[in-house]
């Protein structure tokens, strides 16, 4: 079962993942279309974040986690192949974590952190231009333009999450994976992030893990619903939200189960 796709940038085929001996994902197959927002839904522990972390191979930073079967293709390339350049993959497929973290450096250095590592130092003027453009893109420029050299740790959590998105965008990724990016935010900051996601999908493919059904309804084009580590439902927003076939999914979407 796969979401309806136009051009699928990411193809997951029969993916199995386990933590130690405990299976977390079982025979998961899905495809994620280019420049669309796909919401990954499901109850806690169903493997949503695990699936996300397989796609840019940050899962392997957890010692006991391992992919036990299947393939994941990004733009036709099997990213689970041992010869895959992981750093290049993570540049191309960025991830925004649930808990936004400021690195111990200035706002500008935070934005420039990954880009500088991949492309080297730039002239001050060029760096300033790129920083301004990225911060404008995430709607943070007006709030921080006079304090770019001050510590990023002094930002509010909503501002910090947007800074983290700017930091990911600085790598010029094709795909952004978002792991519950609004779970710690107030409604106003959540609305800002949701607007930003809608703007970003013009250039970037977005996969977002969320517990918030209303949010998935508002922002997603496609929905993948996981239950107990398997795909229970997949399709367009209207298909899944309006006519889910799986009774547990229907109960979950209606709020009877959560």
């Amino acid at each position: 079962m796969t979401p309806t796709a136009n051009t699928s940038w990411i193809q997951v085929e029969s993916l199995d993942v386990a933590y130690g001996n405990a299976p977390v994902l079982h025979q998961v197959s899905a495809s994620f279309p280019e420049r669309q927002v796909t919401a990954i839904l499901g109850p806690s522990g169903c493997g949503k974040s695990t699936l996300l972390r397989v796609i840019n191979r940050t899962l392997e930073l957890t010692p006991e986690a391992r992919v036990t079967g299947g393939q994941v293709h990004v733009k036709g390339r099997n990213i689970l192949h041992p010869s895959e350049d992981i750093r290049s993959l993570r540049k191309q497929v960025g991830i925004v974590q649930q808990r936004p973290l400021a690195f111990p450096m200035s706002i500008q250095e935070n934005v420039d952190f990954g880009r500088r590592h991949h492309h080297g130092r730039l002239q001050r003027k060029e760096r300033d231009r790129i920083t301004a453009s990225l911060l404008e893109r995430v709607g943070l420029w007006d709030e921080v333009k006079h304090r770019l050299d001050s510590s990023a740790t002094r930002l509010s959590i909503g501002q910090l999450q947007r800074l983290c998105i700017a930091r990911t965008l600085a790598n010029d990724p094709d795909v952004i994976l978002m792991d519950e990016p609004c779970s710690a935010l107030d409604p106003e900051s959540t609305a800002t992030i949701e607007t930003l996601i809608q703007e970003l999908k013009a250039t970037v493919t977005i996969l977002i893990v969320t517990h918030n059904i209303a949010q998935a309804r508002r922002i997603s084009d496609q929905i993948l619903f996981l239950l107990d580590g398997t795909v229970a439902e997949a399709g367009t927003n209207a298909e899944v939200m309006g006519a889910a076939r799986n009774p547990r999914v229907r109960r979950f979407l209606s709020g009877e189960e959560g």
Partner: peptide, 10 residues
């Protein structure tokens, strides 16, 4: 910080 930084490909 590991996942946040390495997730950027550094």
């Amino acid at each position: 910080y590991r996942e946040a930084a390495l997730g950027l490909g550094v």
